[in-house]
């Protein structure tokens, strides 16, 4: 398991990374944490001609809060994000999701942006990003653009990023729990740290009466791309998230998702469990939101 040959360049700025990608003419790959890319190279499932190492680009490893928004540099290590006070306070859903990602060693190298850019259907960070409605900033020699997360994932392992684009920042609206807001993240994996057989992320806001003001639901492991279930959102809005509301939302989830069977679980299993995990995540989110009101 040795990678096929490639060239390597380490860059000190996003601009340099973009130039290198442009020069590689579509055959370049950004090397961030490498926790997904390097195994694929070793198995020769990917054969870029050039790796552009952005690990020393300081501007990609910042977490900044301001104006109701949290900006996370795409190269931020998952372990750094997990330990970050801003993330824990303002993006508890992301923190919950990060706790399910890999192991200590892979989180020490793996990056928040890298996980999003890989678009594994079962990756956790993508679900939090979907539920939190994050925006993705991508840059190339052609310029900078912002991509709403809802349009980012296009299928298993495919995204809206062009081959010459570098993912730069993730912009999250602040979503602290309490004061009527809460979140939940549930996952089932074969072993503790495996990719999800099914996973659900929920971000919820209640109004003063305890009714659902807004809710975002994302599920993973159940199809080509991480998926937001807006139809379930519609069903829940204005309700008190009573048992029948949760059951109805779960039923919608089961209808909407189109999972495939594989070695680890049947399509039926994934569909059924995705619905149940959404219910569990909604319950967690509701109790956080209600607790915060006291």
């Amino acid at each position: 398991m040795k990678a096929a040959e490639f060239d390597y360049v380490r860059v000190a700025s996003v601009e340099a990374a973009c130039r290198a990608l442009a020069e590689a003419g579509g055959d370049g790959k950004i090397l961030a944490g490498g926790q997904t890319l390097v195994p694929m190279l070793a198995m020769r499932l990917l054969r870029p001609t050039l790796l552009v190492d952005v690990n020393r680009v300081a501007s990609l490893q910042v977490i900044v809060a301001g104006g109701g928004e949290i900006v996370i540099g795409a190269g931020t290590r998952q372990s750094d994000a997990l330990a970050d006070e801003i993330v824990r306070r303002d993006l508890p859903l992301l923190a919950k999701a990060l706790g399910f990602v890999g192991h200590v060693q892979t989180r020490n190298r793996g990056t928040v942006g890298g996980s999003i850019a890989n678009a594994d259907p079962a990756a956790e960070i993508a679900l939090a990003a979907l539920a939190l409605d994050c925006e993705i900033v991508a840059q190339s020699v052609r310029g900078v653009r912002t991509i709403p997360i809802a349009r980012f994932f296009q299928g298993a392992m495919t995204t809206a990023l062009a081959a010459d684009e570098c993912l730069v920042e993730l912009h999250f609206p602040a979503a602290p729990s309490g004061g009527g807001r809460g979140c939940g993240f549930h996952e089932v994996a074969s072993r503790h740290s495996d990719f999800a057989l099914a996973a659900a992320a929920v971000q919820l806001a209640l109004d003063g009466e305890g009714a659902c003001r807004s809710v975002a639901i994302a599920v993973g492991g159940v199809g080509g791309a991480p998926l937001r279930i807006d139809a379930a959102t519609e069903r829940l809005r204005g309700t008190t998230l009573a048992a029948e509301d949760l059951a109805a939302a779960a039923a919608i989830v089961r209808e909407v998702v189109e999972p495939a069977s594989d070695l680890h679980a049947s399509a039926d299993y994934r569909r059924r469990v995705a619905g149940a995990l959404v219910e569990r995540a909604l319950l967690d989110a509701r109790s956080e939101a209600l607790a915060g009101r006291n």
Binding site: V188, S190, L197, H264, A265, S266, D268, Y269, R272, V273
Partner: peptide, 8 residues
Amino acid sequence: MTPGVLGD
């Protein structure tokens, strides 16, 4: 007896 088998 995996989760997939038992769950189903």
